[in-house]
Structures are given as structure tokens and as C-alpha cells.
Design a protein around this nucleic acid. Structure first.
Length: 583
RNA sequence: UGGCCCCUAGUGUAAUGGUAGCACGACAGACUCUGGAUCUGUUUGUCAAGGUUCGAAUCCUUGGGGGCCAGCCA
């Protein structure tokens, strides 16, 4: 489903990189980074960015740093550092200096650069490009003007270098309360790009940082910090999402401001030029029938609409992981959707398609009956005779071998595989009709047993001994093949069936009158108890993935305990009968 | 009554002034011990109008539609 990189057409970022390599702009080097803020869990949208950044580094023999953009101590926690690092490893990517002593080992942190950033800030002050401003947040907003009206210059804009240096030093020392002053870049209060109207570089925040503790009480803003982080790490291509397009002029302004007066060989008053990474923006992943915003995801968890961040219905990486998605399928999906600047929405069906595609090749096949209906083979001996039949583990993979499944007089089949009054196109069991039980025998339905309420409780069938293994020596064909489980050997389990979390394609669309909560799908989780599995499944371990024949792909949920097997349906198989039936 | 970005089959994505292609979906058929998988075929597209050009999806102009920006968030 996805081309290998070598044959695929280049996306626009790869084209930029190849042009840079051809021109020698970076000496053939490619350094990227994935820069999450440790204030939430990663979701499938982040996976696209991760695959892009790490994938580019892989493809061009470069490196991709994992760098936490931890410049806001009021929102960030180590817990997120761990979960994010863990998710990236799970996805199958490696950052430089990664070791196993800690999950985040080798990761870089913006907070490690705070002193350097501070020094650069002092340099901008000395160059007359930054000043301490005493305006409050409200006043700053007012002075900024609007989209249509230019802003006004702050009354503190023209303080002397000495005063600015002194004030900034005292800001750092903690002499002023939160919000009382900021350091701003002196750019252009009339710029049509609001980002350039003297943006804040530092704010005062007397907050304990999860890594630097109380060492700082001023923290750099994103725009000031990010380009420096990239520069310090020698990032060549700084890839971010579309909403930062308007920030690129500021990104460039800051680096240019630092480089002003600097030289390639370090001669002159300001020293050597620093690396000026190229910021490139792409459209982030958007999926239908779900929500991806941090606030919305957090709301679902806090309000207990789902079981947690790793609820198998969540679009989080930990949710997809628990659901049973393979890292490879997610990587394939990300390659498949491509990279461009057009803000598109991907159908969630493509994600489902990606797991199906992968699991079809690697998942062992097993038989499991979710909604059991008892079948008695009338002409089978009543003495407990067991026939051990060969079942192929994976028709897509000969090396997967085969296993034995026991066939006995009493079996279970899927309730929906029988219809008393079946239409012609129904290729399954019905009175008088013959079907094949997978890897076993042809059976013919001879009778239906009902309870007082008129519900079918049992089927009576006969089998054809000549069809052992599933083929008829006389060349007789049957239209249907059913999965089944021996009643006396069956392992009991709970199976959890998932459906999309929302009934609306775009639940959080602001154009809706309704809140996204109102689109929650009440049937997104169905717990099915009393499912009957073939005996080999008694050994299934947490995380194991397999195909239940004719039903879909499943994995063993982490809530499984000895004696209480729980399976998640990762995704169903395509079902062309269901499609036909519903028409 | 500002600035920046974007618009190619249903959904995505190529074609970088030279035959509009690919993937997925849908539909049809073949095959099949999973109504799965696989294979084959079919369908549908350059937002609009002008201009430049031998030739425009591509360059220019205007119009239309969409997105982003006025956090001491990232």
C-alpha cells in the first residue's frame, strides 16, 4: 500500500533537502528534530510529524533529535517526558545517544539552553534590539493594535542599554513579580505581521520547572527559544506545522539579529555566526470521526468518557498501541497520507486499512466464536470421540506452520452464520443447506431446536465423513465456510468491540451548534462476554495479536488476568456480505 | 476593513512550461477451504475568467473558496 521511499515521488520537503544537498548548502548534512512540549500525550497527528522528521534523517543519512520544548514550567511535567519518549521508541525510531538507562535517555531539552538564550538576549539588548517593558499583559495587548490597525510603541521602548541590562538582570534575580515586566524585541509596531510588533522574548514566572527547579524565574517564549534551540543543535531543516508560517519572519529575525556583527571566522566584537536553520511548514494530520486537540482529549479522559489516555478508542499513540495497532502500520499510514501544505482531512478508514494490510501478512489465524450457537453433529459418535484436525496458521505466510484443532460432537458456530429463512445470497447455514466447517467437515443442517420463547438454542446437523479436512472427494462444492469451536474444548473470554468514538465526521467543528460531546458514539464500546475460543488461545499473552477467522484482528488486552482473558478487536475484516445485506 | 498560506478524481497525493499519473475507496469480473487476501478491469479531476506562450495544473492578473495570525501558550 505504501511505496518504498526509493520509488515514491519526492514530497516538497524532500525536494528542498535534495536541492540543498545538490547545492552543498549544508555540506550534505541533514539534521532534523521532533520538538514536543511535554504537556500532553502524543496522538496519531504527532506520529506524522515523528515519521516525517525521523524518516527524513534516516533517508538522508542524518540524525533526528528528540528535543523537549520545555519553556513553560506551568504546564509541563516529567510524566509527559516519559510517555512521549516511550511512544517514539515504540513507533520504532531512535534519537542520538539513546540508551536504555531511562526511557528518555539521550533526549535534549530546551531548558538545557536557558543560559545561552539568556546570554544571547543580553547581546540583543547591547545591540539595541531588545528592551525591558513595564507594560502589563493587558496594556501590551492594547499597544499591539489589531489586524487592521498598527500598534503603538511602548513608552519603555527607548530605554538605554545600561538600564535594560540592569532591569533584565534584576528580572532574572527575581526582584520583580510575575507579569510586571517582559523583555521584548524591538522590531516594528506597525508591521502587518502582528508577530513582529515587538514580541515578548521573556516573561517572569516564579514557577518550579520540572528540570531546572528554581534556577530561573524568567522563561523564554517559543519564538525566541526555538530558533536558538535549532541553531545550537545544528538543525538544518526545522520542520513545523502550518500555523507557524506567520512566525517564520520572526524566527529569521531573531537569528539574523544574533548574527548581526558576527563573522564566519569569529573575528570582530560579537564572535562567530551561529547556524541559521531553515524553517519549513507542512500541513499536520487531521482525521475524521475523532478529536485531536489536547484540550478535547484531556476532557474525554477527565470526564471519564473513555477509560484513560490509553483507552483503545483514543487516537493517542498509547490508545492505538493498546488497541493493537502495530508500529509498522502507523508508519505505513503516515507515509501513505503524504506531506504537503494543503490542509486535508484523512478518512479514518485509511488508518484501519493500514493495520489490516499489515496484520494480514503477519497475524496468525485462530478460530473464535463471539456469539455462540450450539451445534450437535447427530451422526458423530456419542462416546466423546475427538478428531484432531490440521489448521493452517497463516495462509499468507507458509513459515507460520499449522496447528491442531479438536472436532467433537458438540460445537459452537456464530449465531449470525445461521438463518432459518435464508435468502438465496446467504451462503451460510440454513435448514437443509450444506456448508464447510473450516479445516473440518461438510455439515448439513437437519433441524432447529427452540426454547419456549421461540428462540433458537441449538442446531442439529449431520457431517459427511468423506470430507475430512474440508474437501469433498466427489468434487462437490459448498458456498460457505464457517468458523467453529469444539464446545468441550472451548476457552471462555471477553471480547471488546470498538467503533469510532464519534458519530460526526468533524465533531469539534466550530460551525456546529453543538459541543463535540454530543456527537460521542454511545456504541463505541461493546463488551461481549461468554465468547468461545479454540483451545490454543488459552496460552495467549498480553499484547499478542491474531486474526479470528472471518471476524477481524484482535489482541490480548492489558487488563487480562489469569482465568480472565480479554481481547480487543483491533479492526474487523472487510465484510462484503454485510455490505450486501444492508443494501 | 491588514498580512501570509493553500485549492488537481469520492479522499489523499504526483506531474516543477511539453501525453494529467499513482494510492486508497467505489463499482464489475476472476479466483478462493476466511463473503478475507490476491488478480484483472471500469468510473470520476486541474475552483473560475482573462493574459503570456507554439504549448499552462504549472507563470501573470482579477475573482471565488478555505486556512492561519491580535497569549506574558507552543
Amino acid at each position: 500500500m505504501s511505496d518504498t521511499p526509493a520509488e515514491r515521488q519526492l514530497n516538497f520537503i524532500e525536494q528542498i533537502i535534495e536541492a540543498d544537498n545538490a547545492s552543498g548548502k549544508w555540506g550534505g548534512k541533514v539534521v532534523t528534530r521532533f520538538p514536543p512540549e511535554p504537556n500532553g500525550y502524543l496522538h496519531i497527528g504527532h506520529a506524522k510529524s515523528i515519521c516525517l522528521n525521523f524518516g527524513l534523517a534516516q533517508r538522508y543519512g542524518g540524525t533526528c533529535n528528540l528535543r523537549f520544548d520545555d519553556t513553560n514550567p506551568t504546564k509541563e511535567e516529567m510524566e509527559y517526558v516519559h510517555s512521549i519518549s516511550d511512544n517514539i521508541r515504540w513507533l520504532g525510531f531512535e534519537w542520538p545517544n539513546q540508551k536504555d538507562d531511562a526511557v528518555e535517555s539521550g533526549a535534549l531539552f530546551a531548558s538545557d539552553y536557558f543560559q545561552t538564550m539568556y546570554d544571547y538576549a543580553c547581546e540583543l539588548i547591547r545591540k539595541g534590539k531588545a528592551y525591558v517593558c513595564d507594560l502589563t499583559a493587558d496594556e501590551t495587548r492594547e499597544y499591539r493594535g489589531s489586524l487592521n490597525k498598527p500598534g503603538r510603541e511602548s513608552p519603555h521602548r527607548n530605554r538605554s542599554v545600561e538600564e535594560n541590562l540592569d532591569l533584565f538582570d534584576r528580572m532574572r534575580k527575581g526582584e520583580f513579580p510575575d507579569g510586571s515586566r517582559t523583555l521584548k524585541a524591538k522590531i516594528d509596531m506597525a508591521s502587518p505581521n502582528v508577530n513582529l510588533r515587538d514580541p515578548v522574548m521573556y516573561r517572569i514566572l516564579h514557577a518550579k520547572h520540572h528540570r531546572t527547579g528554581d534556577a530561573w524565574c524568567i522563561y523564554p517564549m517559543y519564538d525566541w527559544a526555538h530558533g536558538i534551540e535549532d541553531s545550537l543543535e545544528g538543525v538544518t531543516h526545522s520542520i513545523c506545522t502550518l500555523e507557524f508560517e506567520n512566525h517564520r519572519p520572526l524566527y529569521d529575525w531573531f537569528i539574523n539579529a544574533i548574527n548581526e556583527g558576527r563573522t564566519n571566522d569569529g573575528s570582530g566584537p560579537w564572535g562567530k555566526r551561529i547556524v541559521h536553520s531553515q524553517q519549513i511548514e507542512f500541513a499536520k494530520l487531521d482525521l475524521n470521526y475523532t478529536v485531536m486537540g489536547k484540550r478535547n482529549l484531556l476532557a474525554l479522559v477527565k470526564e471519564k468518557r473513555v477509560g484513560g489516555w490509553d483507552d483503545p478508542r483514543m487516537p493517542t499513540l498509547s490508545g492505538l498501541r493498546r488497541r493493537g495497532y502495530t508500529p509498522e502500520s502507523i508508519r505505513n499510514f503516515c507515509t501513505d497520507v503524504g506531506v504537503a501544505k494543503f490542509k486535508s482531512t484523512i478518512d479514518i478508514g485509511r488508518l484501519e486499512n493500514a493495520v489490516r494490510d499489515h496484520l494480514n501478512k503477519v497475524a496468525p489465524r485462530r478460530m473464535a466464536v463471539l456469539d455462540p450457537l450450539k451445534v450437535v453433529i447427530e451422526n458423530w459418535p456419542e462416546d466423546g470421540t475427538v478428531d484432531e484436525l490440521d489448521a493452517i496458521n497463516n495462509p499468507e505466510d507458509a513459515s507460520a506452520g499449522s496447528r491442531k484443532v479438536p472436532f467433537t460432537r458438540e460445537l459452537y458456530i456464530e449465531r449470525e452464520d445461521f438463518m432459518e429463512d435464508a435468502p438465496k445470497k446467504f451462503f451460510r447455514l440454513a435448514p437443509g443447506r450444506e456448508v464447510r466447517l473450516r479445516y473440518a467437515y461438510f455439515v448439513t443442517c437437519t433441524g432447529v431446536v427452540k426454547n419456549d420463547a421461540g428462540e433458537i438454542v441449538e442446531l442439529r446437523c449431520t457431517y459427511d465423513p468423506a470430507t475430512r479436512g474440508g474437501d469433498s472427494p466427489d468434487g462437490r462444492k459448498v458456498k460457505g465456510t464457517l468458523h467453529w469451536v469444539s464446545a468441550s474444548h472451548a476457552v471462555e473470554a471477553e471480547v471488546r468491540l470498538y467503533d469510532r468514538l464519534f458519530n460526526d465526521e468533524d465533531p469539534d467543528n466550530p460551525r456546529h451548534e453543538k459541543d463535540f460531546h454530543e456527537f460521542l458514539n454511545p456504541d463505541s464500546l461493546k463488551k461481549v462476554h461468554g465468547c468461545k475460543l479454540e483451545p490454543s488461545l488459552a496460552q495467549a499473552a498480553i499484547g499478542d495479536r491474531m486474526q479470528f477467522e472471518r471476524l477481524g484482528y484482535f489482541n490480548v488486552d492489558i487488563e487480562t488476568t489469569p482465568g480472565n482473558l480479554i481481547f480487543n478487536r483491533i479492526v474487523s475484516l472487510k465484510d462484503s456480505w454485510a455490505k450486501q445485506r444492508d443494501q
